[in-house]
Nucleic acid binder design. Structure first.
Length: 569
RNA sequence: GCGCCCGUGGUGAAAGGGAUAUCACGCAGGCCUCCGGAGCCUGAAGUCGGGGUUCGAAUCCCUGCGGGCGCACCA
């Protein structure tokens, strides 16, 4: 597609007195393929030439009449646009050979030039179960991690564990009062969770529990041996539980730097703030007034001397800059924390760090129940493990029914089940809230990962039947695909690189996810209208090359979303 | 009270100032002696109300309504 654009850029530039690059950025894809394949809009020329855009389009096509290029065969004006039509054979050859040569790397580029991109994602709160609410950060963050990798950046996954804070005071109080050693041993995370919920129930009648919890947290910050002992134990038990989920999802982090990791740096942050003279004491607490910047004040230190979330986040941001000298620093965290990040980045700016503009909060909406929001404290929560397990079970059932002879049923069930959960979350990026609905999670038809995976499996099946005889490149076979369904599919395959870049630029994996739906849809159209194994000679070979390229694009795209592409399902 | 986000067919979503608003679920019909029917084809149905900016608005601005989130000792 890029070569096609470049050709038109060179062609049009002298006619419209613009640089070829300028022409290329103006080019659009028409809404209907029948209009053409690339459109040059004439609006911007209207003022310069003092003519109506449709007239300009008309004139340009007149100047081009009778000419054609390597990749385009005609230019037709339609309203204010000049539409170019590609030459199917030459274009097909170009696209298929690109995919053939680049294989797994098709779509990847080196735009990032190795720049570091720390990505703060997943980041569950220790001692709380891994709820469905965390899946969005985990899945979106991991996809961005993979996508930035594909663009030549050095993504660095950071699991910013919530392993510090008042909740540990609460847990210690709860465990000391009502805890039982044997139950903790048996099922640590769920038991800690029950204690946490219990604490919040009891605190209704006994508000003093809160004070007690705060005091235990202060002890923890002061290195009290008993408090640290509990903390270590709870943290370790929780981590072991998370590992199971990350293994299942195939996610690895470069760093497990939780909030506690920055404890040593908090004094330095406080000093920095005081040196810059942007903080003041208020009612015994240390505050920064952000009123002049239209934001509420932030508190760095409570009157009892304990620090807060934002203090540790400041330390973390500085640490990440000093360690990675990042090109970009991403925080994949829920939209409800938008204000927090505005404050965080503003304080960094006030501290004189010009890199604060390279820190970006990537927000996403809440997952809610029909009845209202989820709440860890109230015990209203769905466990991610349960969602994943049920999805895999459902996939297994369907496979049992549709493909009982499949050898690796378990592998396919995992691919499909996990893919469904991930894709459900990725395909509708939106900052909107999501209503949790079992039926939707467990639905494998329509715009789902299974739809894409199914297309992939079908292609693999055809390629297996075709055998080795067609597994070779052939220039003329790659150039003879001119049917409408073939050309449409080729054009779709051509834009994978653009979609990966757009996903990264806009921080929206959904762009890539939706694109893969398009690829699968175009493939299905082709499949139902163009027999592959039923064709003869060069046409058969050409179609095999086409489906092989399609398979590659689907596999590459799904890989960047963290979704498996099984050969059979 | 103040601030931020979101309102698109019955339902869930796409469209990042451009052409006739795209897709899925569901609904009504059709397609397997044929490469895997988790599929394909056809159909009905939609931009919350009111102002503006623009040659052009689902998109930008104002306003009303509806929903969500946040706002000093949680994270």
């Amino acid at each position: 597609m890029q070569k096609f654009k470049e050709e038109i850029g060179r062609l049009l530039a002298p006619l419209v007195s613009l640089d070829p690059e300028e022409v290329i950025t103006l080019l659009e894809v028409p809404p209907e393929t029948t209009y053409g394949d690339l459109a040059f809009p004439c609006f911007t020329l209207a003022k310069k030439r003092k003519k109506a855009p449709p007239l300009i389009a008309e004139e340009l096509s007149g100047e081009l009449s009778g000419r054609k290029g390597l990749f385009w065969e005609k230019a037709v004006p339609r309203g204010p646009y000049l539409n170019f039509f590609i030459t199917p054979g030459a274009f097909g050859h170009e696209v298929l050979s690109q995919i053939w040569e680049n294989g797994e790397k098709y779509g990847h580029t080196d735009l990032g030039k190795g720049g570091n991109v720390p990505i703060d994602y997943s980041s569950p709160n220790i001692a709380k179960p891994f709820g469905i609410g965390h899946i969005r950060s985990t899945v979106i963050g991991h996809a961005l991690y993979l996508i930035y990798r594909a663009l030549g950046y050095n993504s660095i996954g950071i699991n910013h564990l919530g392993d510090w804070g008042t909740q540990f005071g609460k847990l210690i109080v709860a465990f000391k009062r009502w805890g039982e050693e044997s139950k903790l041993e048996a099922d640590p995370v769920n038991y800690l969770y029950r204690l946490y919920v219990q604490f919040h129930q009891r605190v209704e009648e006994d508000p003093e529990l809160d004070d007690e919890a705060r005091s235990w947290f202060r002890k923890l910050e002061n290195g009290d041996e008993e408090a640290v002992g509990y903390w270590n134990r709870f943290r370790q038990l929780s981590l072991e539980n998370y590992e199971l989920i990350y293994n299942l999802l195939g996610i690895e982090f470069e760093h497990y730097h939780g909030e506690s990791h920055y404890n040593k740096m908090l004094d330095r942050v406080i000093n920095l703030v005081q040196d810059k003279d942007i903080a003041r004491e208020s009612e015994g607490a240390l505050m920064i007034d952000l009123e002049p910047h239209g934001l509420p004040p932030v508190m760095l230190r409570k009157k009892d001397g304990a620090t807060l979330y934002i203090t540790r986040d400041l330390a973390a941001a500085i640490y990440r800059y000093e360690t990675f000298n990042f090109a970009l620093s991403l925080y994949v965290v829920g939209a409800e924390q938008t204000l927090h990040f505005q404050q965080l980045f503003k304080v960094l700016e006030l501290l004189g760090f010009d890199w604060s503009s390279r820190c970006i909060h990537v927000p996403f909406g809440l997952i809610r129940f029909k009845e209202g929001r989820m709440s860890t404290r109230a015990g209203k929560i769905i466990l991610l493990e349960e969602v994943l397990q049920r999805s895999i079970d459902m996939a297994r059932e369907i496979i049992e029914e549709k493909n009982p002879d499949l050898v690796d049923k378990e592998g396919a069930a995992k691919a499909v089940g996990l893919g469904a959960v991930r894709f459900g979350d990725l395909s509708n990026d939106r900052v909107k809230n999501i209503e949790f609905d079992w039926e939707k999670v467990l639905d494998f038809s329509g715009e789902t990962a299974a739809y894409i995976q199914y297309a992939h499996a079908r292609i693999c099946s055809i390629l297996r039947k075709a055998g080795a005889e067609f597994a070779e490149w052939d220039n003329s076979a790659a150039s003879i695909l001119v049917k409408e369904e073939e050309t449409a599919l080729i054009k779709t395959l051509a834009i994978l690189p653009d979609k990966i870049i757009a996903s990264a630029d806009s921080l929206r994996p959904s762009i890539l996810a939706r694109y893969l739906i398009d690829v699968a849809r175009e493939f299905n159209r082709f499949y139902h209208n163009c027999p592959v194994l039923g064709s003869e000679g060069e046409l058969k070979h050409g179609r095999l090359l086409l489906i092989s390229a399609t398979r590659q694009v689907i596999a590459n795209g799904l890989a960047l979303l963290g979704i498996a592409a099984p050969e059979e399902m």
